[in-house]
Amino acid sequence: MDISFKTAEGRFNYRVAGLIVHDEKLLIMQDENQPYYYVPGGRITLHEKSEDAIRREIKEELSLEVNIKRLLWVNENFFEESTLNEKFHEICFFYLLELQDEEFLIRGNEFTVNEEGKIHTYYWKPFEELIALNLYPLFLKERITDLPLEIEHLVEIKL
C-alpha cells in the first residue's frame, strides 16, 4: 500500500525521487498531457525503506538497476497540482543515483516508456537548460550544479 492519502484539505504523499546525472545532464520526465517535468521516483509503500523504494521505482519505470550514491535532500513540499486542482503536502527523499550499466544511455536523449498504460517521456537535459523548464520541485533548477555532501532539509511552500 502506497503511503498516500486524501483528505478534505488535500492529499499527503510520502515519496522518493532519484537524480540520475550523466555528462552534466539530468534525467527528467514528463507525463503525457502534463505541463511540467520532474525526476523519476514514486511513492513509498508501507513498511518499505526509502532506499528500497527508489530502487524499486527506477526498476519499475525504467527497467534499470541503479546504485545509490547518497541521500541529498529531504524535501517538505506544499503545493497545488494544477491539472488535478488539488493541494498536496509531500515529503520526498531525493537520492543521487548512478547507473550500474551505461548501456541504458543508448536509448538516446529522449525516449518514451509505457508504464502500465501511463506514457512517460524521458529527457537528458543539460543543467543550464533546466532553469527555463517547468521543472518541479523548483529547487532542483539551482541546486543540481552544487549537490550537497551532507543531507539537507528543504521546505517549499507554493500554495
Rank of each mutant, 00 (worst) to 15 (best):
D2E: 11
S4N: 12
F5N: 05
F5D: 06
A8V: 13
G10W: 15
R11A: 13
R11S: 12
F12Y: 15
F12T: 12
N13H: 15
N13C: 12
N13Q: 15
Y14K: 10
V16C: 06
G18I: 15
L19M: 14
I20H: 08
V21G: 03
V21I: 14
H22K: 11
H22R: 11
D23G: 09
L26K: 06
L26Y: 01
Q30K: 10
D31H: 06
Y36C: 01
Y36L: 03
Y37A: 02
V39D: 00
V39Q: 01
V39Y: 01
P40C: 02
G41P: 01
G42T: 07
R43S: 02
R43Y: 05
H47R: 04
H47T: 04
E48H: 00
E48A: 01
E48P: 00
K49Y: 04
E51M: 07
A53N: 04
R56E: 12
R56I: 11
E65F: 13
V66T: 11
N67W: 13
I68K: 04
K69L: 09
R70Y: 05
R70C: 05
L72Q: 08
L72A: 08
W73I: 03
W73D: 05
W73N: 08
N75K: 10
F78S: 06
F78V: 03
F79N: 02
F79I: 03
E81N: 07
S82V: 14
L84R: 06
N85A: 04
N85P: 00
E86Q: 04
E86K: 06
E86G: 02
K87N: 06
K87T: 07
K87R: 07
F88D: 05
F88I: 01
E90A: 08
I91N: 08
I91D: 04
F93I: 03
F94A: 04
F94E: 08
F94C: 07
Y95M: 05
L96Y: 14
L99N: 03
Q100T: 15
E102R: 12
E102P: 02
R107E: 08
N109I: 11
N109E: 13
E110R: 10
E110D: 06
F111I: 03
F111K: 03
T112Q: 11
V113W: 08
V113S: 00
E115S: 12
E115L: 10
G117V: 02
G117P: 08
K118M: 09
K118R: 15
H120A: 09
Y122L: 02
Y122G: 01
W124F: 07
K125S: 11
P126F: 05
F127N: 03
E128H: 15
E128C: 03
E129S: 12
I131M: 10
I131L: 10
A132G: 04
L133R: 09
L133D: 06
L138S: 13
L138R: 13
L140K: 02
K141H: 10
R143F: 14
D146V: 15
P148I: 11
P148F: 11
E152H: 09
E152N: 08
E152Q: 10
H153S: 10
L154I: 14
E156D: 07
E156T: 07
E156N: 06
E156V: 04
I157L: 04
I157G: 02
